[in-house]
Structures are given as C-alpha cells and as structure tokens.
Amino acid sequence: MASPQLSVIIPVHNEGANIAPLCERLLPILNRITSVWEVVFVDDGSRDDTLERIREVSRAEPRVGAVSFSRNFGKEIAIAAGLDHAQGDAVVIMDADLQHPPEMIETFVERWREGYMMVYGQRTDRSDETRVKRGFAHLFYQLFARFGEIALPEGAGDFRLIDRKGVEVLRTLGEKARFSKGLYAWIGFKATGVPFVVEERRFGTSKWSFRKLFRFAFDGIAAFSTVPLRIWTYIGFLISILSIATAVFFMIRTLLFGTDLPGFPSLIVSIMFFSGIQLMSLGIVGEYVGRIFAEVKRRPLYVVAERIGGAAEVSSSIVPEAYPLRRA
C-alpha cells in the first residue's frame, strides 16, 4: 500500500459494540477525502470482542488495521502507540464511541490544507455534564493556565489532526506519565480550533470515573509545573512567621500577666495540624520522586501482542518502544 495521506488513530477499550457503527460512518468520509488512507485501532487490553470486530472489518477493508496490547496500559499510552504506527502525512486522533463526529475530519483536513499544523476539536457544549464536573473542568484550565508552562485551549481534547512534523516530534517524547493535551500544546506549531458538539455515546459506558479524572488532572499539572513542590516552601515560610509571631505574643503576655496553665486540647490540635501539613508536603514530593523512579527504569511504554491489517506492515524498527510478540 502506498504511504497514506491521512491516518486515523482510534484507541479502544471494551468498545466492541461501537466498532461497526463507527466504521459505517467513518470509512465513506475518508474515501471522500482521499483514496490513500488508513485507520489504526489501538486495542488497549479489551476483554470483550473488540479485537474480533476490528478483525472482521479489516478482512473486508485492509486499510483498517489494529495494534493490540498485551494488557491495559491506558488511553494516553494507546495514543502514543497509535502515533508510532500511523504513517500518514496528517494524523487524526478520535474516540470510538462516536462522541467525536467523524464528519468533522473533513473540516480538519480543510484547515490543515490551509496551512495549520494542528487542528483541534473544541467542544462548545457541556450540558451533558453535571455542574460539579463542569466547575472542576473550568478550575483545572484556570490552574493550568496560571501555573503550567503553557496554556491549554479550553474545551480542546484528543480529537484533533496533527501534521506529520508534529507527529514526529511527539514520538520523541518518551515520558511514561503522559498528559497528551499538554504535549500537543507544548510542541507548538500553528494551530486552530474547530467548534463541535459532543454527540451521545452509542453503546457502552464511559471509562472515566471522577477519581480517574481527578488523577488525570493532577498528572497534567504535575507534568508541566513544579508549583506543587514550590508551594510547600511558601507554606513553610508562612507557618514559620506565624510561629515567631505567636512566640512573641506569649512572651509579652507572660511578662505582663504571668504564666497560664497550658491547654491540652490546643496542643493536640496544633500537633495534628502541623503533622497533616508535613504529610501532605511529603506526599507531593513522593509523587515527583515516583515519576522519576518510573522514568529511570527505562521500560517500554507498551507491549504489542498482535498487529492486524495495515498496522502489521509497520516494521518493528520504526517502533523501538514496543515489543511485538505476534503478528497477524
């Protein structure tokens, strides 16, 4: 097959019921854009029939391929694997649940042909989310803009088109704790947003619980800012000033009014408060030390168990981070 002009990367995890509906909408659109395209599904350790559904589509359309992990490595790693295997001049990243409308790809390609190296979908409506979730999302973008190395366009996610130059830069970033939204912004290049409305999920349920979203947000801030570390220096300084002021206050009070009987409850509360501050600061430091430990082990980002269709033609020398176990 000739080198594709357009590649579509789709991370999947237990999305078997969505594969056929997605391909029914996606493939005709790709054929309208160009005759030389490829679709790379990245199966992130699915436990349902996702891989079999992809295999059925690949038999009928060889330009549809898949990379299957040996276990679940997470969506961020699946995106990195897709970038390793995609060969197109432009690469589109999208979800399999049809919340990212495939029809938007035509608009992405138009903007790309106008000279933009990065074209991202920017959701305009969050009415499907709870008020609490919308509030935390807005807070995250505000904090990231205030303390992060770069600013993130609010409403932008993984649904985007990236030029080959950008893809090659992203492939050189081998960090384990990945925050792709930040990496997209960090590499720079001329970018533009395209507003879109998130569609309802056709089948299955979201894999993102509130706990996972909170952890993901913390990973993003920790990956692009050292403020969580530095803030404890400021807190320690303020507590030191407060303790000196308190000592001066009690010294003057003792000289003027004599000694009072020490209060046991206030002593216990003080000990618990400062112990909590110390443990929190140690926890933040531990998070960063843990990231250093994960990086220095130099393990590969993922392990490939199987390749299907067009993805099977990718040489393992192109993907040094992956350990292929079997090819289809």
Results as ranks from 00 to 15, higher is better:
His85Thr: 09
Arg63Ser: 13
Arg55Tyr: 02
Gly74Cys: 01
Leu83Val: 04
Ser46Lys: 05
Asp84Glu: 07
Asp89Phe: 10
Asp89Lys: 15
Glu61Thr: 14
Asp95Gly: 12
Asp84Phe: 06
Ala60Lys: 15
Asp48Asn: 10
Gln87Trp: 08
Gly82His: 02
Val67Lys: 09
Val64His: 00
Asp84Asn: 03
Ser46Asn: 07
Val64Tyr: 03
Ile93Tyr: 07
Ser58Gly: 02
Gly65Tyr: 08
Ala81Leu: 01
Ala60Gln: 15
Val64Pro: 03
Gly65Ile: 02
Gly88Ile: 05
Gly88Ser: 08
Phe73Thr: 10
Arg63Gln: 14
Ser70Trp: 04
Ser68Val: 15
Gly88Asn: 09
Val91Glu: 00
Phe73Asn: 07
Ser46Ala: 03
Asn72Pro: 13
Arg63Val: 03
Asp89Leu: 11
Asn72Tyr: 14
Phe73Cys: 07
Val64Asn: 08
Gln87Leu: 08
Ile54Thr: 04
Asp84Lys: 06
Ala81Tyr: 03
Ser68Pro: 12
His85Glu: 00
Ser46His: 03
Gly74Pro: 05
Val92Phe: 03
Ile77Ala: 07
Ala78Cys: 01
His85Asn: 03
Arg53Cys: 08
Lys75Arg: 14
Asp49Gln: 12
Ala81Phe: 07
Ser58Leu: 00
Asp48Phe: 06
Ile54Asn: 04
Pro62Val: 05
Arg47Cys: 11
Ile77Cys: 03
Val91Ser: 07
Ala80Tyr: 13
Ala81Asn: 02
Gly74Lys: 06
Ala80Ser: 13
Leu83Lys: 01
Ile93Cys: 09
Arg59Val: 02
Asp48Lys: 08
Ile54Gln: 03
Ala80Ile: 03
Ile77Asn: 08
Asp48Val: 06
Phe69Thr: 08
Arg55Ala: 02
Ile79His: 14
Ile54Met: 04
Met94Val: 05
Ser68Asp: 12
Ala66Phe: 00
Val67Gln: 06
Arg63Gly: 14
Met94Ser: 06
Asp89Asn: 15
Ser58Val: 00
Ile93Arg: 05
Arg53Ile: 04
Met94Lys: 08
Glu61Lys: 11
Ala66Gly: 06
Ile54Ser: 01
Ile93Met: 10
Val57Trp: 05
Asp95Leu: 06
Gly88Val: 07
Arg63Thr: 09
Leu51Gln: 14
Ser70Arg: 15
Leu83Phe: 03
Leu51Asn: 10
Asn72Trp: 12
Asp89Ser: 14
Leu51Thr: 15
Ser70Gln: 14
Ser68Gln: 15
Ala80Cys: 10
Ala80His: 13
Gly74Asp: 01
